[in-house]
Simulated scan of single mutants.
Amino acid sequence: MLLEIDLQSEVPLYTQLVNAIVEGIARKRLRPGEPLPSVRSLASDLGINLHTVNKAYQILKQEGYVQINRKQGVVVHPDTMPPADESYHQRLNEQLKPLIADAICRGLTKEQFGALCHEVFEDMRREENTNG
């Protein structure tokens, strides 16, 4: 599993790790039931603290992306993902607000922002279809 972590970024390492794994699942680089590296192994490979990896794995578990099992370790959730229900929509709304505000402050139009979102979405779907 190839993950890119930017040690110089202002984004917390555990957030980068969560985002990278979710993107790997979305792009079908990580398949349902596929094991992820152990906390110790991934921390060593990335040169980061064990607690950082553990925090990322716990967040992924809470959000339904992985299961943590004493025997199997951490695996990509083998079943379907939780649906995009009302609570997900509320969370997505809260996550989008700062991105949209930043885009507005930097002069992006609604159309430009929408086009960028569409481009990124299609890029992930395109890769999903080539990996699926």
Rank of each mutant, 00 (worst) to 15 (best):
G132N: 12
N93F: 15
N54H: 13
I48Y: 11
S41Q: 01
I25E: 09
A43C: 04
L17E: 03
T80A: 08
R106Q: 15
H118A: 11
L46P: 05
R70M: 12
K97S: 07
A43D: 02
F121A: 14
L42A: 08
A103L: 00
D102R: 07
G73A: 08
N93P: 09
I5V: 01
E94V: 12
I100A: 05
Q72W: 15
I48R: 10
Q16M: 12
L92Q: 07
L42G: 02
D85F: 15
I100V: 12
M124N: 09
I5R: 03
I5F: 07
E23A: 09
E86A: 09
H89V: 00
I104P: 05
M1A: 06
V53I: 13
C117H: 07
T15S: 07
I100T: 10
L13F: 02
A26W: 04
A84K: 03
Q58L: 07
S44F: 08
G64W: 08
K97Q: 11
Q95V: 02
A20D: 01
P78C: 14
L46I: 02
S9N: 09
S38W: 02
G132T: 10
Q112F: 06
E63G: 09
S87E: 13
I104S: 14
G73F: 04
V39F: 06
P98S: 00
D45C: 12
V120I: 14
S38A: 04
L36H: 11
H51G: 14
G73W: 05
E86D: 11
R40V: 08
A43L: 02
H77T: 15
R31I: 03
I100M: 10
E111A: 00
